[in-house]
């Protein structure tokens, strides 16, 4: 059975830590950094559980700062 693998690339310096991508993710891949901040002082989003990503691009669709790019491949 083929499997869909996804990955997200987040521009951490653009991210403003609004949390909308974390809520939009259907497979709970993303989280905001609990302590670390970017150079503008925001707790940026990161892929906490990258193996669960299915590349649906829901996070990228709701991101107001367009800092998420999404990759997807199907493994037969």
């Amino acid at each position: 059975m083929s499997k869909v693998l996804g990955a997200v690339e987040i521009n951490r310096e653009r991210c403003k830590g609004c949390d909308l991508c974390v809520v939009a993710c259907p497979t709970d891949v993303l989280l905001l950094q609990p302590k670390e901040v970017n150079n503008r002082g925001y707790h940026f989003a990161f892929a906490a559980d990258p193996d669960k990503c299915i590349g649906c691009a829901s996070c990228a669709a709701v991101c107001p700062d367009a800092c998420i790019e999404v990759y997807r491949m199907v493994v037969k």
């Binding site: 107001p64 367009a66 999404v70 990759y71």
Partner: peptide
């Protein structure tokens, strides 16, 4: 997985590199 041929969602080219001044979210 992060390879150009697998890209399904890219930042639109018409958005330039300036950081938006809008509040988070």
């Amino acid at each position: 997985i992060i390879r150009p041929e697998n890209k399904v969602y890219a930042r639109p080219a018409l958005l330039n590199e300036n950081n938006m001044h809008y509040c988070p979210g």
